[in-house]
Computed example of a mutant assay.
Amino acid sequence: MEILADHTDLARVDVSGVRRAINVGLLEGEELRPGDWILIHVGFALSKIDEDEAKAAMEFLESIGQAYDDELAALKESSLDPFDPIGRGEA
């Protein structure tokens, strides 16, 4: 969604409707723009991927069913965003 102007190693992203700040420091030198697809693990951007790769990853996650639904529910209840300590996800 956006690179944070005062923290250029952080980006606010949308993960299945949940907004979070993630660290993009591992992608230094990569051109990142709103709308890009990023592979994220435990709050870190690991790589920029294309839309086909993102779609395949989402289809896999959705295919595992309840475990994916439980993970999304836990994500929505947590607050990992240092700029949103209440976890509302409002920008």
Results as ranks from 00 to 15, higher is better:
residue 59 E to H: 09
residue 87 G to S: 13
residue 85 P to S: 08
residue 78 S to L: 05
residue 47 S to E: 15
residue 44 F to L: 13
residue 51 E to I: 12
residue 33 R to H: 11
residue 35 G to N: 04
residue 36 D to L: 02
residue 49 I to W: 07
residue 72 L to M: 11
residue 57 A to V: 09
residue 71 E to F: 09
residue 48 K to H: 07
residue 51 E to D: 12
residue 44 F to C: 15
residue 87 G to L: 03
residue 32 L to G: 03
residue 90 E to F: 11
residue 26 L to F: 07
residue 40 I to H: 04
residue 54 A to H: 05
residue 52 D to P: 03
residue 27 L to H: 02
residue 31 E to N: 11
residue 31 E to V: 05
residue 88 R to V: 12
residue 50 D to T: 12
residue 37 W to L: 05
residue 57 A to E: 14
residue 91 A to Q: 13
residue 31 E to K: 06
residue 42 V to E: 15
residue 59 E to S: 13
residue 74 A to G: 00
residue 36 D to E: 06
residue 33 R to T: 08
residue 67 A to W: 12
residue 30 E to H: 02
residue 50 D to P: 01
residue 54 A to F: 12
residue 88 R to K: 14
residue 26 L to P: 12
residue 31 E to S: 04
residue 34 P to V: 01
residue 27 L to T: 00
residue 59 E to G: 13
residue 63 S to G: 10
residue 74 A to I: 01
residue 57 A to H: 06
residue 41 H to D: 11
residue 30 E to Y: 01
residue 61 L to Y: 06
residue 56 A to K: 11
residue 31 E to T: 07
residue 48 K to S: 12
residue 82 P to Q: 05
residue 42 V to P: 03
residue 50 D to K: 03
residue 40 I to M: 05
residue 66 Q to K: 14
residue 71 E to S: 10
residue 60 F to D: 08
residue 65 G to Q: 02
